[in-house]
Nucleic acid binder design. Structure first.
Length: 505
RNA sequence: CGGAGUGUAGCUCAGCCUGGUAGAGCGCUACGUUCGGGACGUAGAAGUCGCUGGUCCGAAUCCAGUCACUCCGACCA
């Protein structure tokens, strides 16, 4: 057990410990912001690479827009302003002057600039310029960027004032096409989350009060963390003509009529890293899904005597060349030989805490026997996945093994998700009793004390207050509706809509 | 913006109540014995005690002010 605090003891503290012990990120001196370190940022780079490819495969191209947005742009869309007004970083001055040894802002801007919390408004402005005819449509673009939302209670990866994300923005000629786009990208997110991050998700639509400010419909993927709380892992918005009307995105259709266009936007952020941690990490630290691991295999040389060094290192070099010819997930295997001048046990433990999928310890005995010691971080069945095996066997099976470990991680998480969605709660009384317990870590595969409840919702406005008081949220209205009727779990009124209730991050 | 708390070595903290001039553990450096699931010994380096002012012969310690951060609420991808 490498973590001081276990999941069971104190889940939030365990989370912070994993982030710090895996050396993924730390708090910056700049309040609410984080410094992403090699292992955390490396994971983000992998996420970028894999997801970017999927975004491009679906016909989108990358653009880049300014991070400063004139204040007036936010006033154009009423709901949008209201939704973001409370958390803006506002640039009001353009220089500093030295007054009695103290630097003070000077030269106030005529119009303050907002550091983008999201880019709908400024991108819509460009769309208005670019769109004239139906022949200009659709425009399918994406941007990888940083955004700022002035959060009061930051948590590494889950909620920081500045965070990294991608935001897709598209314009279409018809509502149908825009809605199809919204759902297509949601599916890209589901596929990415489940296949690249091994993080199973529920897909659905947000209720009215949880929608993105300015959207007609918000769709989302929701993941379950090991403490039974929900994490919104990605969103895709159908914006209708709201932003088109406020930014004047008009085009001439085939009948020579002037029409407002339909836009969408969709995004995932560095929060996905937080989700991956809380989905897979254990009491030994982080566990990185092989598909997105910065290094999938780490070799730790075991050298006791200086005279063994040459033998061991040349054996490792040779092995390295062979491993580099192998592939997993259709890419070359990423390998690190940890040659740092440190005790080898320390290095081994470090990679366990970081969650490198496979760590090989290689010493003189292995060089003699043409073998190696393999430790798999994803413990399948046995608690210590440690074995000595012939090197050639290891090399030839490596790609398939990494893919298998990835699948194991997914099915473990999937089993946990499915086992922890209660569907047998039918009355407000049972519902309240169920959520009265505080959240805790849910044992793998067993039904947790508090996780998700799937049940009816009447959608009356009064339910919003009830939810708030109970600190429960409606995560989504799942696509797969049962179509049956029953009683709302909050009010007891007749209802037909199925929703997912949960506590959330 | 409310409520509470904390600033002392790179990190975690003790010392403060009852003033006397700086401590521990971890980490770091060197050497030796170790090394395949977290070793140990010896020696050593390292802190204007958040900042400013006051009281005092003397302040990490008492007083005032100030700055910063953390936690709990409100807000949230």
């Amino acid at each position: 057990m490498a973590m001081k605090t276990t999941r069971k003891q104190n889940y939030p503290q365990w989370y912070q410990e994993v982030v710090s012990e895996a050396d993924m990120a730390e708090n910056s001196v700049s309040p609410g912001c984080m410094v992403m370190k090699a292992w955390g940022y490396g994971l983000w780079e992998r996420i970028q690479r894999v997801l970017d490819e999927k975004i491009k495969e679906t016909g989108h191209e990358n653009y880049y827009f300014p991070m400063f947005i004139p204040l007036s742009f936010f006033q154009k869309e009423a709901d949008h302003v209201e939704g973001f007004a409370k958390e803006m970083a506002v640039v009001t001055h353009s220089r500093l002057v030295n007054e009695e040894g103290k630097l003070k802002p000077a030269s106030p801007l005529e119009e303050p600039l907002i550091v983008r919390p999201t880019s709908e408004t400024i991108i819509a402005d460009s769309f208005a310029k670019w769109v004239n005819s139906y022949r200009d449509l659709p425009i399918l673009l994406n941007q990888w960027a940083n955004v700022v939302r002035w959060e009061m209670r930051p948590r590494l990866f889950l909620r920081t004032r500045e965070f990294l994300w991608q935001e897709g923005h598209t314009v279409h000629a018809t509502p149908k096409e825009a809605e199809d786009e919204t759902k297509k990208m949601l599916e890209v997110y589901r596929d990415f989350s489940e296949n690249a991050l091994a993080m199973p998700v529920l897909v659905g639509r947000k209720p009215e009060h949880e929608k993105f400010p300015g959207a007609i419909d918000t769709y989302c993927i929701e993941a379950m963390m090991q403490d039974g709380k929900a994490l919104q892992a990605g969103t895709s918005h159908f914006l209708g003509q709201n932003f088109a009307k406020s930014a004047d995105i008009k085009f001439t259709n085939q009948n020579n009529e002037l029409e407002y266009a339909y836009t969408t936007s969709w995004g995932v952020s560095t929060r996905l890293i937080g989700g991956t941690i809380m989905c897979h990490a254990d009491d030994d630290g982080m566990v990185v899904p092989p598909h997105v691991a910065p290094y999938q295999v780490v070799i730790v040389p075991i050298i006791k005597k200086p005279e063994d060094a040459e033998k061991v290192m040349s054996y490792i070099d040779n092995l390295k060349q062979q491993i580099k010819l192998q592939t997993a997930f259709g890419e070359k295997i990423r390998l690190k030989v940890d040659t740092r001048d440190k005790p080898s046990v320390d290095k081994s433990w470090e990679w366990i805490r970081k969650g490198a999928p496979i760590v090989c310890e290689i010493g003189p005995r292995d060089a003699d026997s043409k073998g190696l010691m393999v430790k798999e971080r994803i413990y399948i069945g046995q608690p210590e996945g440690k074995k000595i095996m012939p090197a050639d066997e290891f090399v030839t099976q490596l790609g398939a093994r990494l893919e298998m470990l990835q699948n194991q991680m997914f099915s473990k998480a999937k089993t946990r998700l499915e086992a922890n969605i209660r569907t047998d709660i039918t009355t407000p009384k049972e519902f309240a009793a169920y959520f009265a317990n505080s959240n805790e870590w849910i044992e793998d595969g067993k039904a947790g004390k508090v996780a998700f409840v799937r049940g009816k919702w009447c959608a009356e406005p009064e339910t919003e207050e009830i939810l708030k008081a109970m600190k429960i949220t409606i995560r989504c209205i799942p696509f797969d509706q049962s179509g049956t009727s029953g009683k709302c779990l909050l009010t007891g009124k007749d209802a037909t809509m199925d929703v997912i209730y949960a506590r959330s991050y």
